[in-house]
Amino acid sequence: MPALLELDNITISFGGLTALNRVSLRVEEGKINSLIGPNGAGKSTIFNVITGIYTPTYGRVIFQGEDITREKPYLITARGIARTFQNIRLFKNLTVLDNVKIGCHSSSRAGLFGAVTRLGWVKREEREITARAQRALEIVGLASKGDELAKNLPYGEQRRLEIARALAASPRLLLLDEPAAGMNPQEKQTLMEMVQRIREMNITIMLVEHDMSFVMNLSDHVDVLNYGEKIAGGTPAEIRQNPRVIEAYLGNEIE
């Protein structure tokens, strides 16, 4: 079976410093795939390469059998890849609902003309957007907070709002960049259930996360990066026992 997303020998360097070196990996459809590694291993860089913010020096990104390596970020989103950011990037001064409505951008089409005339189809589309945004907010448990300004939400809810915004884009592949960062154990538990529910909606998930138990409990497949190179890939059980992983990164954290 062909993978949903495939990275083929991705290499990228910034001013002589190689951030990723010949990284290849496959993301299988319908699974939760995790990417782990110490700080600076290149995990977020991989997300930025997939979403088109960085262009790799060498290598290809293949999504649904098509090469998307040099495509613009907004077109990649339209193809069905949505993401969250490690350092939360919400539209701070807009309401929670508007944040999520903006997530629906790719799958709607009213433009300037529609905005001024508000023809029948424009109104219908706007109602549809609102309904979809509301559903996305329900999934992350923020349905009652639609009118608040995004910047006024507590930290954990801001992380969830980012997920709702990405979900509103109806992605086939959802990239979550450290979604559990800064959360307490209880919030993490809720988040874990949320991610599982999203997977059941037939959305493939790629996850960058530092919290080991979070990753190991949730993932179907784990890839390990170290200094910009992939050093291992396999099921959580295999990763736990991989000597290179233990030596390079996990040390005695996992027994």
């Binding site: 913010i53 613009k72 907004y74 989103t77 949505a82 539209f91 903006i102 790719s106 884009a169």
Partner: peptide, 8 residues
């Protein structure tokens, strides 16, 4: 950047 990531 977030706007572009939302498909804009």
């Amino acid at each position: 950047i977030a706007a572009e990531a939302m498909g804009i």
